[in-house]
Structure formats: structure tokens, C-alpha cells
Simulated assay, not measured.
Amino acid sequence: MQKDKRQNSILEKLNTDQKVTTLQLAEDFRVSEDTIRRDLNEMAQKGLLSKVHGGAVSSIQKLYYYNDNVIKNQQEKESIAKKATSFLSDDMSIIISDGTTNLAFARNIPKDIKATVFTYCLPIAMELTEHPGIEIIFLGGKIEKKSMVAIGIDVLNKFSDIHVDMCFLGTGSIGPIEGITEGSYEVSLIKKAIIAASDSVISLATSNKLGLRQPYSICKPPEIGFLVTELDPANPKLAHYAEAGIQLL
């Protein structure tokens, strides 16, 4: 296939899927990955798409994707995400909070699942547009530009009007005595509202967050249904959390 036809086909795929990978394009067009990288670089220079790690996204959607190159502990977060999907079943209503671990979780949600998802995180909302069976309800308010999440009283008020089966809480710090804590007052208010709106709380945390404590309390261990980390539940680092009554995955 000639280069111009190949690049037009790449644009068509982006219009449909919003994101493409270098590996998949190379397989589809039966060319080398280096050829695809040159195509993507040329198209990015023309403003036709936006390059990301491992592929490209639509230039229209580029603001809604975290740069995978700057996400720390990607392997651990991917492991947590895969574990967390075991909680999902059809017709559930869930809240997904912000954070790159939760973004990894959203990316791992099966495409055929039917559910209602509430979120205040733009990248997660945009990621879920690729799931035909998921109804996405974005709880909007003032957008914090750096993290691309909605914050403020509008978001809090919207959480007070809903009730869901389960929430998946991105967790900055968690201890076996103090529970989940946060460094931002505004974020702490939102996460408290999320917990109040949920029947069950699933905390997603990489192991480097264990034992840390920040100024604002979110919830104590009895309110946490499950703690999901990349570690085996029998790992000694998790023993005190099990003793506190937190179920581990």
C-alpha cells in the first residue's frame, strides 16, 4: 500500500477507535514498525494526530490521555487493574475516582461489560467511550487543568444525589491504623462523598503507598471493603492490613 493511502487508513482508524498502536498498525498494513513510526511522526508534524507512547491518538482527543511515558510504576498498576476487574459484573453501578492506577483499571475493563460508571476524571471518562455497553456519567464542575479532574462544590453536590454498588478509589496513602489519607483538602472532600455514595469501597494502591500518612483523613480501615495491590495477599507487608479487617486481593 502506498504511503498516502496508508496514512489515510490510519486516520480512518483514529476516527473510529480514537487511539492506535504502532504494533497493530504494522500488522494490519504488513509493514515494519519503523515504517509506521515514520508515518506517525510525519502525520503528527502536520497536526493530523498526536503521538503517544506506543502509538497515536486523535488530535481531537489528545488532551484526554495521560502520557504513558510519565506514569510511574506502570507494571504494578497494570497488575492491580487486572485484579480489580474481577469485581465487575453486568448491570453494576460504580464510581471510578481519579489517578493513573484507576486509568489503568478503566483501560482493562472488558469491552463487552454493561454497567453505569460515574467519574469526575476526564481521562477516565474518555477512555470509557470505547466501551459500548457502559453508560458514562461525568460529574462535572471546575476543571483542575493539571490533573484533568472536576473539583469543587458542584461535584460534591452531585455525589450526594447518587448511590452505587461499588467505588474504585485511587489511593495516595493507606495505613493499617489511620486508613486512607490524602494531601489535598478538596480531594479529601470528594473522596469522602464517594465513599458515602457507595455500598462497597475498593482501594487501589501500589505497594509504595502502604504505610504512608497525609494530613486529611478519608476513611478508617472498617470502611474499606478490599485493598488491591500488586502484591500477593500473603505478603508480609500486608499482614497488618489483614489484621485490621481489610480484605486483600
Score class of each variant (00 low, 15 high):
I136C: 05
M92A: 04
E33G: 02
I174Q: 01
E144V: 11
L40A: 01
K158A: 15
M92N: 05
N15S: 14
C219K: 00
V187C: 01
L11Y: 00
G133E: 12
A197Q: 10
G152N: 09
F226I: 12
S58E: 07
D199G: 13
T85P: 09
Y66L: 14
K111F: 06
V155H: 03
V187G: 03
S9P: 02
C121T: 13
I137F: 03
T116W: 04
T229D: 11
I218R: 02
K13E: 13
V70I: 14
S173W: 04
V70N: 08
I136Q: 08
D98C: 11
K83S: 09
I60P: 03
G211K: 03
L212P: 04
P176L: 05
L48K: 11
N41M: 06
I174R: 02
E178P: 00
H163R: 14
M148C: 13
L210E: 09
V164N: 04
L210N: 05
G172T: 12
N41G: 00
I124G: 03
K191G: 07
D112H: 12
Y241D: 05
S188K: 09
Y216Q: 06
L122S: 02
L23H: 11
E127M: 15
F29A: 05
E42R: 12
R213T: 15
D68H: 08
K146M: 13
L204S: 13
I109H: 03
E144S: 15
L128M: 14
S58V: 07
I180L: 07
N157L: 06
